[in-house]
């Protein structure tokens, strides 16, 4: 189909994803509140935040790289989302997945984080580089189990092309990767906790130690860009996990349902656990999930898992 229709479809899919991501954010805040025994803000609170921050009259900048930080961040979120075929079979939601395979998506995640790191660095506040140092270190550790899981998936389906992986998991929930190679899913889900930076692994934002960490100097308009990205990026990650491990989605409703439960997994864990110290979290990622990942590979490659 022509480039114009492709872009139009992409816009639709992005708006839907962003809206869905932000509402998920609101629901999470509601759940945290309930756990803490208070009512918590309305579910559409993130939308209000964006409107409130983008409307600010005064904004402060620390130089060009500082301005480009949020741009990189949102571009990263957008790019990650656009390279994943969201709904199997539908033209509207297949986005630009023909550009690259699973590796492209995995590496595009870094695009956003790298940009954010540079922007925050330029901010000049000591908290942001501390946050970023923790973020990068933790990212390198949780990336390992996720990579092992991805390799296991690649071996199992003998392809890195997301659409073909989803295609292989169609026909009943029994042939989802969850059931065919559970260890890989275990490793991936634990690294998802790291990705979403919920409580045990929230050393990057670490509200008490380094309040909000990297984006500390961001203000007004730039903050709004970051908040939109928070919604979109979360949605992108969930869709990716859904496609890889939970059999993808043939229609929008199925997509919403599955991603909702994936997200609730990390929220509930987040709500229940206190925060790790940085070295504890690095060591944790390098121990159990990695072993799970390695076992999954061995299971798939050598013990002749169902492929």
């Amino acid at each position: 189909m022509s480039l114009a229709t492709q872009i139009f479809y992409a816009v639709i899919s992005v708006t839907v994803a962003t809206a869905y991501g932000l509402t998920l954010g609101g629901i999470t805040r509601k759940i945290y509140a309930r756990v803490h025994g208070r009512f918590g803000p309305p579910v559409w609170q993130p939308f209000l935040d964006i409107i409130q921050t983008s409307g600010r009259r005064v904004s402060v900048s620390h130089g060009n790289m500082f301005l480009l930080g949020p741009v990189f961040r949102l571009a990263g979120g957008l790019g990650t989302y656009l390279f994943i075929p969201v709904i199997y079979g539908s033209a509207v939601f297949s986005n630009f997945s023909m550009a690259g395979d699973l590796l492209l998506v995995m590496y595009f995640v870094f695009f956003g984080q790298l940009g954010m790191a540079l922007g925050a660095g330029q901010g000049g506040h000591p908290y942001s580089p501390i946050g970023i140092a923790r973020g990068l270190a933790q990212m390198s550790t949780f990336e390992l189990p996720f990579a092992l899981a991805v390799i296991a998936v690649a071996i199992q389906y003998n392809s890195l092309n997301i659409t073909s992986i989803v295609a292989a998991q169609q026909g009943g929930f029994m042939n989802w990767t969850l059931f065919t190679n559970p260890l890989a899913v275990v490793a991936a889900m634990i690294s998802l906790l790291g990705m979403n930076m919920h409580s045990p692994f929230s050393i990057v934002l670490a509200p008490q130690e380094i309040p909000i960490g990297p984006p500390i100097e961001m203000n007004s308009g730039f903050l709004s860009i970051l908040q939109t990205n928070r919604g979109l990026f979360a949605a992108a990650k969930l869709v990716l996990f859904m496609n890889l491990f939970f059999g993808g989605a043939t229609n929008l409703l199925e997509m919403v349902a599955k991603t909702f439960f994936i997200y609730m997994f990390s929220v509930f864990v987040g709500a229940a656990y206190p925060r790790f110290r940085p070295e504890q979290s690095f060591r944790f990622f390098l121990k159990w999930p990695t072993i799970a990942g390695i076992l999954s590979i061995i299971y798939i490659a050598y013990l002749g898992g169902t492929s």
Partner: peptide
């Protein structure tokens, strides 16, 4: 896209 968004929002930032 975010760059344009930035230009819109940047309008009156103070260096």
């Amino acid at each position: 896209v975010p760059f344009i968004l930035l230009l819109l929002v940047k309008g009156k930032t103070q260096k």
